[in-house]
Design a protein around this nucleic acid. Structure first.
Lengths: 153, 153
DNA sequence: AATCGAAAGGTCAGGAAAGGTCAAAGCCAG
DNA sequence: CTGGCTTTGACCTTTCCTGACCTTTCGATT
């Protein structure tokens, strides 16, 4: 965790933590200055870390008085987690999206680092055994089953 | 026990011993330099000594600031349990045998009635989605993953 | 109202810095 | 002297970071 993108990511997440509404508004130029980097680095961080899959929505506005607004979507405790997981994962999921979901669950404090790594490793290994065209389906099954099993505790 | 791979293995294990969390993070290039070998030698050590079966999880990241993270699953004596589960279930299992195994685990007090029913239900539901000729394989994957997840607690 | 310039933010391609893969050569116990 | 671990090296993929150039918005000036 030693690169710039990681630092910027955790800075933004800290800001989000302390923001009551789960929304923050920043200026790209200002943030770039704080980290002494090029402004487009901020876009890189947003594009790779604050994706929809990981549970964020990013809105921006150009021009004078422009801004970048980052909104964190929460799973909310109201809904039945099982059906939420079901719809979130579906019947077929890519390795990338599976990973994003696991990171999101970790961010939400629903899984710890160990469990996340465990699930990821099992997915990688088990998925290798089946024919490539079935991997998405098998991955989805495994992911749902394991996440549900772990969340039951 | 005089070869390079063994030295690297024991070096990493020593690091893991002294790491509080059972997790270490290294750089492949740096480690290769320390042992004066090519970087791919590190991959060899990881692939042969730090396997899932032996209770390790390895996560890596490429690119600038990349790393290799080795995580030791510390479920003490359950380590044997993991490989036992593996050999017991194998790569392909029938619904009947899966059921029998679950009952046995319940009898042994490793799973409670609830968990057993849960696993059984998931197996039934998820295997339906895949082509019949793949069901045994998918069932085995799911079963292993879920049982391990549940037993980890 | 139309125009223009300044002040945002956006896009994209390229180079550098990791780590990954695979096959061939090397080594050694049996 | 052969089969199975080791070790190496050539080549590949992913991730990060920057810089050049583009688009949008706002407000002041005509």
């Amino acid at each position: 965790m030693g690169n710039l993108a990681d630092y910027i990511e955790s800075y933004l997440k800290r800001l989000l933590e302390s923001a009551a509404e789960g929304v923050i508004e920043i200026q790209r130029r200002e943030l770039a200055e704080r980290f002494r980097c090029v402004p487009s680095q901020i876009n890189y961080v947003l594009a790779t870390r604050f994706t929809h899959d990981r549970g964020y929505i990013v809105e921006t506005r150009r021009g004078g008085g422009g801004y970048i607004r980052i909104l964190r979507l929460s799973f909310g405790s109201d809904q039945d987690l099982a059906s939420l997981i079901q719809t979130e994962i579906g019947d077929d999921i890519s390795a990338r999206r599976a990973d994003a979901l696991l990171i999101r669950l970790e961010d939400e404090g629903l899984l710890n680092e160990n469990d996340r790594a465990f699930v990821k490793a099992v997915l990688a290994r088990e998925t290798l055994r089946v024919h490539p065209s079935y991997r998405g389906v098998v991955r989805a099954s495994l992911l749902k089953a394991m996440v549900m099993a772990l969340l039951r505790q």
